[in-house]
Amino acid sequence: MMVKPIRSESDYEANLARLEDLMDAAPGTPEEDELEILATLIERYESERYPIPMPTPLAAIRFRMEQDELTPRDLEPYLGSRARVSEVLSGVRPLSIDMIRALNEHLGIPAEVLIRPQPRQQATVELTKPAAKQLSTWGVLGGGETFEKFMARALGGDTALALLRKTRTERTNAKTDLVAVRAWCAAALLYSESEAVFGRFDPKAVTTSVVRALVGLSVYDDGPQRARAMLAQLGVILVVLPHLPGTHLDGASLRRTADGVPVIALTLRRDRIDSFWFTLLHELAHVVLHLSGDRAFILDDLEISSSDVIEQEADQWAQDALIRKELWDVFKQKGVYTSMADILAFARRAEVNPAIVAGRWQRANKNFRKFAGLLGHSAVRPNFPEFGRPRIA
């Protein structure tokens, strides 16, 4: 392992490429150590070279309102009367010391953000340089195009952009760049326009037998591609698109504003068979159960646990879809005494790829070394030759 400091853009690009190669490093290996060091170096370089500006007090309050689904009325205990809340949210009234203390204590908004002066005119929202460069490379961001214009073009106008600003973002990393997240969603929707679906999506058509047939495709080497074709028959588009710097996403379930077609977008952040199928089924659960009304975007970093009801429902739906509960309840009694032969035999009985069983066993037993060789490392991306090189003509 030979890791050097990042001193230039060329060093930065080389380290990003190396980081991609190491994303599936097995736990406890020298490659995993290198991955952690590279991630730290890249994060430090990005924060120093392309710092994300601290939000204004009003932006921080509105973000917390979106995140916790708060209404202006919910702020009255911290800001005062309804009229006073309205004045604060419109930028007419500055925050008092008592307001700052209440917002910090009860809503967890950092005091150092709240004490900043509120500018009279909000600065234009901009992408970081690395995110803009990636979008340009993909052919979705035009030269000189602003973030707002790009979003309006991709989502179909201000109404869709307002919906995306209301996206449920609880299951995102604390360091997530939400501007880049929104841009990634827009890019995924642009790519979806080149994919065909066959018929209108009907949640009722996703029956138990249909889900079992979808999961059964996992036993094939080209199972991910077969899954994409089957979803298209159901009226759902599957898009694979690398994550942008600062997004920390595994996937998202989206709905196109123009025609309502549901889109499952995956980053393949973990190029493993077990991760692919769980993420796919998790997002499909959102499509079937949760995409409705003004909820057109649901984002997921599946490394983060969530108390959100819809996330727990999607986790359980995916888990039961991949391995039937009655089968798993019997198998899990073997516990730590499970052998590789047991994993393979159970996978045949459950009619799923052994990687799915191995991954489930690891999480259940909190042992991420045993059966690591069965997880199907680097076996998913070859199914999507456009991955890492997406481009819109």
Rank of each mutant, 00 (worst) to 15 (best):
F331R: 08
G142I: 05
K166L: 12
G143C: 01
E32Y: 05
T71Q: 13
S306A: 13
L231R: 04
G260A: 11
R389G: 00
A265C: 08
R349C: 05
L127V: 03
T159K: 14
R200G: 04
A17E: 12
G376F: 03
H286P: 05
A180F: 05
R44E: 15
A347R: 00
A258Y: 11
D11W: 04
E13R: 15
G144W: 07
D308Y: 05
L41G: 02
A180E: 03
L70F: 06
L164W: 11
P382W: 02
K175W: 12
L291C: 08
T124M: 09
A196N: 06
Y337L: 12
S86D: 05
P57V: 06
V181W: 00
D24G: 08
A345G: 13
E145P: 03
Q118H: 12
D250R: 03
P245H: 04
D158G: 03
P77L: 11
Q362Y: 13
G246S: 07
P382K: 06
L103A: 02
A183K: 04
A14P: 01
L289Y: 04
G293K: 07
R116A: 10
I6H: 04
R84V: 09
Q122F: 02
A314I: 04
V352W: 00
A205N: 11
T208V: 09
T137N: 14
W317V: 00
P224V: 05
A265L: 02
R295H: 07
T71H: 10
E326W: 03
E303I: 08
M23G: 11
R391V: 10
E43P: 03
G143T: 13
R269E: 11
F368T: 01
W361V: 15
A14D: 11
L41I: 12
L375G: 06
R120Y: 06
D259M: 13
E34H: 07
V263L: 01
H377S: 09
V261Q: 08
F278C: 04
V215F: 11
L89D: 08
A358Y: 10
Q233T: 02
R82N: 11
L22K: 03
Q118N: 11
S8R: 09
W317N: 01
Q67H: 10
G28T: 06
D329F: 09
R120I: 06
Q67C: 04
A174K: 11
T29D: 03
V140Q: 01
V330F: 04
V330G: 07
